[in-house]
Simulated assay, not measured.
Amino acid sequence: MTARRPAALAVEALRYEVDGHTLLHGVDLAARPGETVGVVGPNGSGKTTLLRCVHGALRPTAGRVLLDGLDAGELGVKERARVVAVVPQDADGTFGLTVHEVVAMGRSPHKRFWEQDGPGDRRLVAEALETVGMAAFAARAFGELSGGERQRVLVARALVQEPGLLALDEPTNHLDIRYQLEVLALVRGLAATGLLVLHDLNLAAFFCDRLYVLSGGTVVAAGPPAEVLTPELLKEVYGVRAEVAPHPTTGVPNIVYLP
């Protein structure tokens, strides 16, 4: 699969409020072109809200999101979608569609309204389905798939968008271990910049160049996994006891949780 030039992402003083509740308190975050950046934190910390502000599903109350130095809030929907592709936790708007049709939706930012798929579009769809191991399911109804199968199809849909920034919200949900590793290795290997919301801290440590830890809508730590994932931080943010040591094979931080 191909991608456009990797995009630079800068989130500046991002604030988001809804119904009088502040969910993000002046968040700053940056991802350099080609980096894989993870956003971690406990439930309710603001991870998904942050990601949705980045890809445009939510409009920040204050602050801004910059894509290659341009204010994303000033870009049109299609213009923004040509830079950012998202893999959400759910799949709205897919009722009654086949797997092939769901993946082909990723080509829409590059086409005029009602423009039909051409040979190049069909080639990209076939390549993406092959990449995520779902080529044999192209004619199947998307709604008949298991949760893990649907997740892989949504990754394929993002790939055919040929984004500069790939934003993924819990991309390993519903996946068995093999496909967790394969999907994250795929994202890591793309030319696109990656912004991933993850719950599994060991996966985040292995696949991400840098991590941002959110708690209560605020960034409480940021940096390489080896600097961020400490027993002290895990106790403070997650309320758990843990031992953290370099893995003997990979050298990346390995977390063992203690009772």
Rank of each mutant, 00 (worst) to 15 (best):
D209W: 00
S108I: 12
R157K: 08
L181N: 10
G41K: 04
G56E: 03
S215V: 10
P171C: 11
C53Y: 02
A72I: 01
T172A: 10
P171T: 09
A245F: 15
V77D: 13
L159T: 00
L196Y: 10
P259W: 13
V228L: 01
G118I: 10
P6V: 02
V228D: 04
R140H: 13
A226Y: 12
P248E: 05
V77A: 15
H25I: 04
L154W: 01
A156P: 02
L23R: 12
Q151S: 06
A167I: 13
L50H: 12
D19C: 09
V84D: 00
R32Y: 08
A136D: 14
C53K: 01
F207Y: 14
L70D: 12
P259C: 09
T2I: 15
A156V: 00
N173Y: 05
P33A: 05
G41C: 06
L166V: 07
G34W: 05
E127H: 09
L184T: 05
L211C: 01
R122P: 13
D169F: 03
L24G: 09
L97M: 15
G147T: 02
Q151I: 03
G56K: 04
H21R: 15
Q116G: 14
C53T: 03
D200Y: 03
A85H: 00
D68P: 06
G73N: 02
A13L: 10
P119V: 06
R241K: 13
L168W: 07
A81P: 01
T249A: 14
V213L: 04
L9V: 02
E232P: 02
L145A: 08
D68H: 11
L166I: 08
R122M: 12
L166C: 12
Y257C: 12
L195I: 11
R82I: 02
G44T: 11
L184Y: 06
L145C: 08
L14W: 07
E232R: 13
R150D: 10
D121W: 04
F142L: 07
G20K: 02
D117S: 13
D19Y: 10
V187G: 01
D28S: 09
V102F: 02
G93R: 11
R112V: 10
R15G: 14
